[in-house]
Nucleic acid binder design. Structure first.
Lengths: 346, 346
DNA sequence: ATGAAAGCGCTAACAC
DNA sequence: GTGTTAGCGCTTTCAT
């Protein structure tokens, strides 16, 4: 059995209180006593129990990460989707640096979710859905949280990190136009999140400003590449087919690309294709597909810093400028920068 | 404040025990009573507190994941390394399916690690180091764990998942030979784990069997692509330079590739290059680099299933055959399959 | 500077 | 079937 605070207290000839103070640094303990306690603790291999401590202090030292798009998925993460994995990995590292563990949990507002889910000190919710039930729950219980991306049905507050989907979308659209696209279509996902909503809004504004007729298709995120494929077929069958297509996901873009080639269209000669999020699919396709890199690593670090500040009642970290992202230009649009895409050196 | 079991008990006119039984399903509660309790709980928004429950039952519902190679890293995950991210993501999903949360934690045997780290019900340790201190600690405290990869200094037991590095290494070496390599060099990492050790052993056996002189270089994993680059320079400066190089990491392989081209060597004409682990670098390099896909997703699922079985005292899951992996053949070796690499369709 | 005692919210014996 | 009674390991007043 693991040593308890009592074991240490007895062996060191002090009370549990003193041991507690020694480790928490809260009370005042004589230096000599402190040393003796530490020594005994080392001998016994004692480490304070985080659960018991958590029961008293209501602080477990764990951040919960809820990845909304995983909830719509049936079971496994689709091959090649690495945005969330990268986000989770970077968030975990950032959490650990601040003395927290990071736990990936299923929606704790669902009754059948593991109870531990609710015990986290705070939550990161990536791409909340409209009127996200978890946000309602956390708000009611006064549990700190941070949405990465807005709840599309709630007002924008500092409870949400701006991921600048509109600016990003506009930039990709501009790139498609600059490289020769004149009729740009949009393929969206169906999850009711701000990412889809903002991309659509930006697209509509962009086409309106240029006097183009918008063409928007929707395919469930879960349909993956196959969804993109049917979207592509539908687009290229139109009387006035688009000569450029922006897809929200890399998988959809890969599907559109396949549909284009099946129809004998050359890419990027006849059609330019770009994706609103980078993934294995955009990199592996031939030609490689231009995509927006949402920089999940930086986003995650910012999110963790902000959430931890909120939990600890500190001031939020410096905004560190607007959200960061990068357009990775690849062969599918053959812009002036084609071929520069890829990973940074060294 | 969140409702407690007492609040529910009072309001439902029963004792806390009955409420407890209602939710844990342990005791026997009259159907009518159960319904009433559930109803009151719903009204009050009561959910059992996982921490208090954990204090009693010594079961938190959390698996800890310790990624050893992250410990050698200074701060952030190097760009392009996705093995561990994929492993972590898949493990988290698998854990959640079994009612557990998955928490990425820094080595809990370190004194300065967050205390919550030790509170996990069991641990997954990827690529344990020699005489891994965490394994000593967990063994002493009888905490279930599973090494993903062996502890190179401890005897192989069922506490470790076999990742078949030797078979995999041999297969890549065979591929290099089949595509024209006659003098194959090996670039290893320096972490004292079974992955490096087994790869070297397999290489030495393979060269010995073919009567070749082994050439082994070591570069710290942290040196990344730069380390591979200096290794490549050293190799190609030899009197009898290799015509094939196997690197443990994709980053090293990318570095060797760069060194080869700088020296005017053609790939795969003069030199064939392959990597023992896939990463963004092997996919993004030009030519693309052949690599072993360690299938972190499957490995993670197997690992979680095994660990959970151990925690719950159940029989381990069916071994499901030998560990799985795949050689992703790419342009850098121009074998008979060249060009087939990439992601599965649909 | 140190200790005694009262819980944190829940579960597990054991009555009834 | 349901309630009573002790705690789980720790922190936290409040004495001393």
């Amino acid at each position: 059995m693991r040593a308890t605070i009592q074991d240490v207290a007895r062996r060191a000839g002090v009370s549990a209180t003193t041991v507690s103070h020694t480790f928490s640094g809260h009370g005042v303990v004589a230096p000599g006593t402190r040393e003796r306690v530490r020594e005994v603790a080392r001998e016994l291999g004692y480490r304070p129990d985080a659960i018991a401590r958590g029961l008293r202090s209501n602080r477990l030292g764990v951040l919960g990460l809820v990845v909304r798009p995983l909830d719509t998925l049936d079971t496994v993460l689709p091959d090649g989707v690495d945005y969330f994995l990268r986000f989770a990995g970077s968030a975990a590292l950032a959490a650990v640096e601040r003395g927290y563990g990071l736990m990936l949990v299923p929606d704790p507002s669902q009754d059948d979710s593991p109870a531990i889910g609710l015990a986290c000190d705070g939550f990161l919710i990536t791409e909340p859905v409209a009127n996200d039930p978890l946000i309602s729950l956390l708000t009611r219980d006064c549990v700190p949280f941070l949405g990465v991306g807005q709840d599309p049905a709630r007002p924008m507050t500092e409870d949400y990190l701006d991921v600048a989907t509109d600016r990003l979308t506009t930039e990709v659209l501009d790139h498609l136009a600059e490289t020769g696209g004149t009729r740009v279509a949009l393929v969206l996902g169906t999850d009711p999140n701000a990412w889809n909503r903002d991309a659509e809004a930006a697209y509509l504004a962009w086409t309106a400003a240029r006097g183009q007729d918008p063409v928007v298709l929707r395919r469930a995120e879960t349909a993956g590449q196959a969804g993109g494929h049917t979207a592509g077929e539908e687009l290229f069958r139109l009387a006035a087919p688009p000569d450029a297509v922006l897809c929200q996901t890399g998988r959809q873009a890969a599907g559109v690309l396949a549909a284009a080639r099946e129809r004998g269209l050359s890419v990027p000669g006849d059609v330019r294709i770009a994706a609103g999020s980078d993934s294995e699919h955009t990199r592996a396709a031939r030609p490689t597909i231009t995509a927006a890199d949402l920089r999940p690593d930086r986003l995650a670090r910012t999110a963790v810093a902000t959430l931890v500040a909120r939990i600890e009642g500190a001031a939020p970290p410096e905004p560190a400028g607007p959200p960061d992202y990068a357009l990775v230009v690849r062969e599918s649009t053959a812009g002036p920068d084609a071929g520069r895409g890829g990973i940074p050196g060294a």
